[in-house]
Simulated assay, not measured.
Amino acid sequence: MSTVKEIYNWIDSIAPFAAAESWDNSGLLVETGEPEIDRVLLALDITGEVAREAQEISAQLIVAHHPVIFHPLRSLHPGQPAYWLVRYGINAICAHTNLDVAVGGVNDALARRLGLRCLEP
C-alpha cells in the first residue's frame, strides 16, 4: 500500500510538477483524505465514465495525463468529472506538461517513435 503523497512524490521525482507550463494545472487536483491507496486507475482524461469505472473497481486514485480541473470551477454539479471524484471519494493526480517535458516523458517517447534525432529541449 502507498499513500497519495508517496505516489505524488514518485511522479514528481520523474516528471517534476515544477516543470509544468505556467498555464497548466498539473498536480494533486482532487484530494479526498484517503490514507491508503491500494488500487490506481490510469487514464488519459478523467471523464464521468472513468470516475465511475474507478469507483466500480474500488480505485482510490486516478492518475491522468490531462488535468481534470483546468479552468477555475464556478460551480460543481453531476455533469462534471470532478463532481464524481468527490462523490466517490477518489483522489486525482494529473501530470500534463510536466510529463510531456520530462526526460523519457511523452515528448521523448513520441520523438523516438517518429525516429527523430538531435533533439533539443
Rank of each mutant, 00 (worst) to 15 (best):
S2N: 15
T3H: 10
V4R: 08
K5E: 15
E6M: 05
I7T: 15
I7V: 12
I7L: 15
N9S: 14
S13P: 07
I14W: 00
I14D: 03
A15D: 03
A18M: 04
A19Q: 15
W23E: 12
N25C: 05
N25K: 09
S26Q: 03
L29G: 10
V30Y: 02
E31A: 13
T32W: 00
G33D: 00
G33P: 08
G33F: 01
E34N: 15
E34F: 02
P35T: 12
E36I: 14
R39M: 06
R39S: 11
R39P: 08
L41D: 07
L41S: 02
A43E: 11
L44S: 13
L44C: 13
D45L: 05
I46T: 15
I46K: 06
T47N: 07
G48N: 09
E49F: 04
E49Y: 04
E49W: 00
V50Y: 02
A51S: 13
A51L: 00
E53Q: 14
E53D: 10
A54C: 03
A54Q: 02
Q55S: 12
Q60Y: 05
Q60T: 06
I62S: 06
V63F: 07
A64N: 06
A64M: 02
V68I: 13
I69W: 05
F70H: 07
H71N: 14
P72H: 03
P72K: 05
P72V: 04
R74A: 12
R74K: 13
H77L: 05
H77F: 01
P78C: 03
P78F: 01
G79S: 13
Q80T: 01
Q80P: 10
Q80E: 08
P81T: 07
P81C: 06
P81E: 05
Y83V: 00
Y83W: 14
Y83S: 00
W84F: 05
L85H: 04
L85M: 09
L85W: 04
L85R: 02
V86K: 13
G89L: 06
G89K: 07
G89S: 06
I90H: 11
I90W: 03
N91H: 12
N91M: 07
N91S: 13
N91I: 14
I93N: 09
I93D: 03
C94V: 08
A95C: 03
A95F: 01
H96F: 07
N98S: 09
L99S: 08
L99I: 02
D100Q: 04
V101M: 02
D108I: 06
A109N: 03
A109D: 07
A109M: 09
A111N: 11
R112C: 04
R112K: 12
L114K: 05
G115C: 03
L116N: 14
L116R: 10
L116D: 04
R117M: 14
C118K: 15
L119K: 11
P121R: 15
P121C: 11
